[in-house]
């Protein structure tokens, strides 16, 4: 029996299991305890409503227009702003890639991400308000005759998602664009392809898998917009997004079961969108975006 012990140890080590491997345990246990467990707990809780059978929460959500309408409302904000951010990011990233001093621009763009949505909301309230600088400028140049209402409505949330979302999609896109070997585009040019053809046939196909991921991440962020929907939006009407409904259920009606159900639905919509985007991605070319072995 004594001879078995070291051999088992060696076998485990060959399989990659030894003392060092055990170091993953704190991290794994932490994520299991504070991420996976709460999620499963919330899932279970959502099937134990205050009154009614186990599906009562979900039935209530889809029968109460005040609740189910939050999904189309959220999609109406998140989908256009995500697409807009990604579509704007691509040409800018392609241009910035050739810049020698990218650092200043990327630093400026990282500021709104760092400040976060609450700060951006307060900035927009001051800057876009009826007496703010933007409205003064618009009136000065005769673009508008009176103050344009850009906050406390749909457009306020759109703009806040544009300001905090564009830098995110841009920096992500830039990192994908810089991963494409520049000599591929040069090779295209040497073969007579115009800028438009090079974009269409070389850059876009190589960028597409990365763009699918960017689109998914950006969409998930926009879909869970929360503080700015309240602060610069119209939280009782046009920008009553799904996270507001979940928040109100938990912190105003103290119905944690319903709140969990809404959170699960939120996660469900995200999963559906991500699976759809990544499914589309798997149809695309996914090899390295550089050529050959060099």
């Amino acid at each position: 029996m004594n001879g078995e012990k070291p051999r088992l140890r060696w076998r485990l080590r060959e399989a990659g299991l030894d003392g060092v491997t055990l170091l993953v345990l704190p991290g794994v246990l932490f994520v299991l305890a504070l991420f996976i467990y709460p999620f499963l707990y919330g899932l279970g809780l959502s099937f134990h409503p205050a009154k009614g059978d186990w599906l009562a929460n979900y039935r209530r959500f889809f029968s109460d227009p005040f609740l189910w309408r939050t999904i189309p409302t959220t999609l109406l904000i998140a989908a256009p702003v995500t697409v807009l951010n990604v579509v704007l990011s691509v040409p800018v990233a392609l241009r910035v890639r050739r810049m020698r001093r990218q650092r200043l621009l990327t630093t400026i763009l990282v500021i709104p991400i760092t400040l976060g949505t609450v700060m951006v909301a307060e900035g927009l309230l001051t800057y876009l308000g009826p007496r703010g600088w933007l409205n003064r400028t618009l009136i000065l140049f005769g673009i508008a005759s009176g103050p344009v209402h850009l906050v406390h409505n749909y457009w306020g949330v759109m703009l806040s998602l544009l300001i905090s979302g564009f830098p995110f999609t841009f920096l992500l896109t830039l990192s994908y664009v810089t991963g494409i070997d520049p000599s591929l585009e040069q090779a295209g040019a040497m073969l007579g392809a115009r800028a438009r053809q090079r974009f269409r046939h070389i850059l876009l196909p190589l960028l597409a898998p990365g763009l699918a991921i960017t689109l998914a991440l950006a969409f998930v962020q926009a879909f869970t917009v929360f503080p700015s929907a309240i602060l610069v939006g119209d939280p009782a009407g046009a920008t009553r997004v799904i996270s507001i409904a979940a928040y109100q259920a938990a912190y105003e009606q103290f119905d944690y079961s319903l709140a969990s159900a809404i959170a699960m639905l939120m996660a469900g919509v995200q999963v559906v969108i991500i699976v759809a985007l990544l499914g589309a991605r798997s149809l695309l070319f996914r090899g390295p975006a550089s050529s050959g072995k060099g």
Partner: peptide, 13 residues
């Protein structure tokens, strides 16, 4: 997963 999604179950726990 965005924080607001798991924040509510986490707060409950």
């Amino acid at each position: 997963v965005p924080p607001i999604t798991y924040g509510i179950p986490l707060a409950t726990v």
